[in-house]
Design a protein around this nucleic acid. Structure first.
Length: 561
RNA sequence: GCGCCCGUAGCUCAGCUGGAUAGAGCGCUGCCCUCCGAAGGCAGAGGUCAGGGGUUCGAAUCCCUUCGGGCGCGCCA
């Protein structure tokens, strides 16, 4: 074996060296062609190797030869011009115009060594830029978090973790919609519950918030203040009940988010945003730019000049601001302190995207605001549809879901599908500890590795951690697992670049699958010490990557189950 | 009516911004525990990628169009 390549050559190094050598070879052979763009992809079929590149296709025209001839010519050139590069590959073949590459086992062995050495920081980048502002889950402070917010929380928090892994500075925030008429409605509903405590016939407001969740809050007021508010005038009790209800419910929402594993950096009150004067300042600035005009006694923002369907009212005829006004101020603030601002909105906010993006553009940040819509979630239990209606008062809360299926299953299921496709969540399936349940499949993989490491001699495990010679790793299942583990950084980067957290769920299943296959084909605790230590090291690497992926989606990685 | 998303195996869904014989899980049929966790592995059956046109060496992927679904179009938030 070539001694120069036994010292840590990682897959990406090998590919980069190969790409460079190909560019040189192409430049020498086809000087009339543009500089070759050498990109690699992972072929679907294992017999096509670890990686493939399609450079030959774009050269075929210039070369006036078939792609396969071009590919074969390039390979022949490389053998002569860059033997130190071709030595990194077990095979380099021209097939149907592609150049198929199989890395030398030693490269995969270096990668396993790298993961064992780096541990949880494998592939992770330090840093805090660019700065990302992520807002998700935000709700009216009028009731508990429900299922659709659960999905937004799972998606948003997974994205936040992925961004951090990639070295971005992430700021996670929530806006409390506490400035509109809904707080008044909350106050009336809560007051009715309070009065019903003394007089069951007290009427509940028609547009009030039903459901049982206001009962304990009313009870708290009863216990503290007794009948004090029964004869008070509305101007007295309304602000009190509004504030108390709002504060209590926001605290409960925070508790639910925390229980779900989601930590926020900022809970921004919309009411506070108005009171601070920032909103008025920003609106004045827009007016100065000539972007605000009066019509019908109301004030309009010329969002249509920035791509929106039509202009939007920001100050009503009665002088009060619409919801859009403080949101402009909030987004202006976010855009000022972050390089990218990402909102995850609910499925009923399609119509809001245009005006928000227009506002961002008008304020001098075109293209800095990205909006994701997290689609509907419908609940099933077994084959039955579970109905949840806010109006009917039989809402199913995020806490209900956590109680029934646990945080792990809930987070995995919420993140499993592409964000823009509707999700059917089967509660029964999520609780089943069976092979129908993808969460357990992945967690089982992790627990199984932990079990093997427990069965092994402690001294062997220690030796494996110290990264022994891994030359024994050569079986297809071993190399396939190593190749899969190597993908982690690339997968996370894809999650971030495409705002597609569901790829992590898919990747987690792939890693588990490759491990299980390795496990059934290669016995780990064999007599031969070198093989045993090498396989233990591979187990440690697989466990590291599985734990990392599970952590990115906020799911625990159990040592046993 | 206008705008956004979607249509892939019996079911639920992937398909890495255009690549090779379209994949996975579940379900179905059959195998595999004297041995590290069978919550596992292997094999098989199952497809006109909604239909039609176009772009090019090459399309599930990009463009046009028809059909079929979901959602959004307040001086609500």
């Amino acid at each position: 074996m070539n001694p120069t390549i036994t010292s840590a050559v990682l897959p990406e190094d090998a590919l980069e060296a190969f790409a460079g050598a190909v560019r040189d070879a192409v430049a020498a052979r086809y000087p009339q062609a543009e500089a070759a763009n050498v990109a690699f992809e992972a072929p679907r079929r294992p017999e096509f190797g670890d990686f493939a590149t399609n450079v030959a296709f774009s050269l075929a025209k210039v070369a006036r030869r078939s792609p396969n001839d071009v590919a074969a010519g390039i390979i022949a050139d490389l053998e002569a011009s860059a033997p130190n590069v071709t030595a990194l590959f077990a095979s380099i073949e021209a097939v149907a115009g592609f150049i198929n590459l199989r890395l030398a086992p030693v490269v995969w062995q270096s990668l396993v060594a790298r993961i064992v050495r780096d541990g949880a920081s494998f592939g992770r980048r330090d840093g805090d830029s660019p700065r990302i502002s992520l807002e998700f889950g935000s709700a009216n402070p009028t009731g508990p978090l429900v299922v659709v917010q659960g999905r937004a929380l799972a998606i948003g928090d997974t994205l936040a973790r992925a961004f951090r892994y990639c070295g971005y500075g992430v700021f996670v925030e929530w806006i409390i919609n506490d400035a509109g008429s809904q707080v008044e409605t909350l106050a009336r509903s809560l007051y009715a519950r309070y009065c019903q405590n003394f007089d069951a016939s007290y009427p509940f407001p028609e547009d009030g918030y039903p459901g049982d969740y206001l009962l304990p809050i009313a009870q708290t007021i009863v216990e503290r203040d007794g009948e004090k508010w029964r004869d008070a005038s509305e101007s007295e009790w309304l602000p009190y009940f509004g504030q108390f209800g709002r504060d209590t419910i926001v605290a409960e929402q925070r508790a639910s988010a925390t229980r779900f594993g989601v930590q926020y950096d900022l809970w921004q009150s919309e009411k506070e945003l108005r009171a601070s004067g920032r909103m008025d300042e920003d609106l004045a600035k827009l007016a100065q730019m000539g972007l605000i005009y009066e019509s019908d006694g109301a004030k309009f923002f010329r969002t249509s000049e920035f791509g929106d369907d039509k202009d939007r009212v920001i100050i009503r005829r009665d002088g009060s601001p619409t919801y859009f006004a403080p949101d402009i101020a909030y987004h202006y603030e976010k855009l000022s302190r972050a390089d990218r601002v990402i909102d995850i909105l609910g499925p009923d906010h399609h119509g809001y995207i245009g005006r928000l993006k227009a506002a961002a553009a008008a304020m001098g940040f075109p293209g800095h605001l990205e909006i994701m819509i997290s689609q509907l979630v419908s609940l099933m239990r077994g084959g039955e549809t579970v109905s949840s209606s806010k109006r009917a008062g039989n809402i199913i809360t995020l806490d209900d879901i956590i109680d029934e299926v646990g945080v792990d299953a809930a987070r995995f299921f919420f993140v499993m599908l592409a964000t823009d496709s509707p999700l059917t969540f089967d509660l029964q399936l999520a609780t089943e500890q069976s092979n129908e349940n993808p969460v357990y499949y992945v967690q089982y993989g992790h627990a199984r590795i932990a079990s093997v490491l427990k069965n092994a001699d402690a001294s062997d495990v220690e030796a494996a951690h110290a990264v022994p010679s891994l030359a024994a790793l050569a079986a297809p299942a071993e190399l396939a697992l190593a190749r899969r583990l190597a993908e982690l950084p690339k997968v996370v980067r894809g999650v971030v670049d495409h705002l597609a957290p569901h790829r992590l769920a898919k990747y987690a299943r792939d890693v588990a699958s490759d491990f299980h296959q390795f496990y059934s084909e290669c016995r780990i605790l064999v007599d031969d010490r070198e093989t045993r230590l090498a396989r233990l090291a591979l187990c440690i690497a697989a466990k590291t990557v599985l734990a990392e992926v599970l952590d990115l989606v906020g799911v625990s990685a159990p040592e046993s189950m």
